[in-house]
């Protein structure tokens, strides 16, 4: 039994973090918002790191990694509020196609030339799909009415929910960082607002929520990767706590920023809106809570201390 993510296993996600931190700062979000929302050069950078093929088996030219690795990287995508559809295409649609034995186009996936989209009935839209565009409050999201058949496969839903949870954790972490930085530099009453205890405690609460959301996320990713019978329960758990942490972080961050936070000029809004989007995508709160309710209260799943990893 080992809940620790081995340091070697974090290396790729750390490399992605460094790369995105250097190339995908908030100025990129502003530029994309003012223009066409997508940038082939950014996508190519992700392709060069091998990320579209992360979950593609090595026999098909991919990196052959697992869902935990993908979740670690999806979190980094959330951190920088990545606009390119890497997560939905490479970490949701691609593994689902592979699970169904649809391996014909994997070389094109790895090369970044084909980006599969995943249409699930629970959403009612498709991210980066071909159909008629649907407006989202998130200026960098490209939603489309589904033109393809919408699946109701629970595996697809679980992949979408898990990867949304991972991005939500990254989004929440980034919003907390922004709030902390702002609280250090904004002074009122002759001191940084971050020295006021009301501000400190608000941000400490976000830290608590994140500290106890992360291990739930990793556990869910591993369970889904292992094909554990209880994986859906753990994915729902992760989606709920990640959504709650992201909303809490967003509301705390805007409060700490004061009126600045309410403007379109401060970048916080990009992260906040992505959090609202992903919080509702791939199963609402009610949907995921109902799955937990059925397992825990409905006695479908063994609970109690001896069943920590059931």
């Amino acid at each position: 039994m080992d809940m620790l993510i081995a340091p070697e296993r974090l290396e790729l996600a750390e490399a992605v973090r460094d790369y995105l931190a250097g190339t995908h700062g908030p100025e990129v979000l502003r530029r994309l918002d003012a223009g066409p929302n997508r940038d082939p050069a950014i996508w190519q950078g992700l392709v060069d790191m091998g990320l579209p093929g992360l979950l593609v088996p090595e026999t098909h030219g991919g990196l052959g990694m697992g869902l935990l690795d993908a979740a670690l990287i999806a979190r980094e995508c959330g951190r920088v509020c990545l606009a390119e559809p890497l997560v939905e295409s490479a970490f949701v649609a691609t593994p689902w196609l592979i699970a169904q034995g649809q391996t014909a186009n994997l070389a094109a996936v790895v090369a970044g030339e084909y980006r599969p989209v995943a249409a699930h009935a629970i959403n009612g839209w498709v991210a980066d799909g071909e159909g008629e565009s649907v407006a989202s409050i998130d200026p960098l999201r490209r939603l489309a009415a589904p033109v393809e058949a919408q699946s109701d496969d629970p595996l697809l839903l679980d992949l979408g929910a898990l990867m949304s949870a991972a991005q939500l954790v990254g989004l929440a972490e980034a919003m907390l960082d922004q709030a902390v930085e702002y609280a250090k530099i904004r002074t009122q009453f002759g001191q940084p607002v971050g020295a006021f205890q009301a501000i400190k405690h608000k941000l400490a609460d976000v830290s608590v929520a994140l500290e106890f959301a992360r291990p739930v996320l990793w556990r869910a990713a591993q369970a889904l990767d292992d094909g554990a019978e209880s994986a859906a329960l753990h994915v729902s758990h992760a989606k709920l706590v990640a959504t709650d942490a992201a909303y809490l972080s967003a509301e705390s961050a805007i409060q700490v920023h004061g009126a600045m936070g309410y403007t379109y000029e401060v970048d916080l809004h990009f992260w906040m809106k992505r959090a609202w989007a992903l919080g509702g995508a791939w199963g609402s709160r009610a949907f995921h809570l109902a799955r937990i309710d059925a397992a825990v209260i409905g006695a479908a799943h063994p609970i109690g201390p001896e069943n920590t990893f059931a």
Binding site: P192, G194, A204
Partner: peptide
Amino acid sequence: TAERLLGLPRVGAG
């Protein structure tokens, strides 16, 4: 948490 983990300033209350 605020001061040691988040690095918020110690001046003022607390």
